[in-house]
Design a protein around this nucleic acid. Sequence first.
DNA 1: GCTAGCATGTAAACGGTTACATGATTAG
DNA 2: CTAATCATGTAACCGTTTACATGCTAGC
Lengths: 173, 173
Amino acid sequence: MLSLAILGFLAEESMHAYELRRRISDLMGHSRPISDGALHPALTRLRASGLVERVGQTRGSGPPRQVMSLTDAGRTELLRRLAEPEETEITNGSSFFTLLAFLGRLPEGDQARVLRRRLDFLEAPASFFYRDGEPQRAEDVEDRYRRGMLLLARASSRAERAWLRETIAELES
Amino acid sequence: MLSLAILGFLAEESMHAYELRRRISDLMGHSRPISDGALHPALTRLRASGLVERVGQTRGSGPPRQVMSLTDAGRTELLRRLAEPEETEITNGSSFFTLLAFLGRLPEGDQARVLRRRLDFLEAPASFFYRDGEPQRAEDVEDRYRRGMLLLARASSRAERAWLRETIAELES
DNA sequence: GCTAGCATGTAAACGGTTACATGATTAG
DNA sequence: CTAATCATGTAACCGTTTACATGCTAGC
């Protein structure tokens, strides 16, 4: 998920690790900035796989500013990961949102295919708060907070489904 | 987060690790069941801290069925963690939802205090998609998917804030 | 002169996933 | 009889957090 965000942002333009960290934090919004202990090792792994390159701009003293860029292999890998997301990247809300942020880089047909996978998942009965095959009715949940969770989760799901249908329709027109 | 869910469910009743796993998966809904490699070590840690006890029901052969129960220390710790959640448990949506599932165990005054913390967080300008101190307008976001993310995140936030205000008002009446 | 923000990195500890290993019980 | 589900656990691997360590630059 972090590596996808790195590839995605570097596809837009080359930048320092520090700038990358700022953008990734902005994207996730809410939760606190990702740590250096996550970012730097992730970049090291991506460099080791040949997906990311870096060029040091030496300064008078101290460590040189390192500009990170995507290699051709990195660009290919980004498109592959966007076009053929793993099951958990469809299933897990925050992973899917990371994917969405860069989906515009794909050809429109591929975009629609990914959106449809997410829609199918959200429409599947197993997806949300079913009990014995029947959708659980909010009134049947005694606890106020469990009821609240159910209502909020359903409202989000409904809004996302509406947006997905609309966007798929736009892409197909 | 996993340990909180374990303490919360065991406060309702004693049960096997297997049943615990089923309930935790149901609670999180969408994403796949938590793995044994997460659950068993978590239970071992909770036992080591004296928060959970287990009693083996020996069977003819094979490993005995282990019934897990909360100790008094475990009950105290659960209430403490619910009443004084850490910043990330307020900030991170899915952590907060785990907390919510067991919030009803707290005295109502404490419940309201926790809900207000979450509401304050959601109302803070830093919370969602601000740009240079100004709320970012959806029309200004060129990319269709970034715009969608913004709209969906705002809709969820609005719904949750409404529910929080309503619930806090109910608790205070 | 100092503080906040810019900038890069390492190491230990922690917790989760995946894979492995085993066996009982229940329903078709 | 056999597949699915119930049931418990370990070990290797992986990525994240937290803490540590360093130094530049711009504004007050």
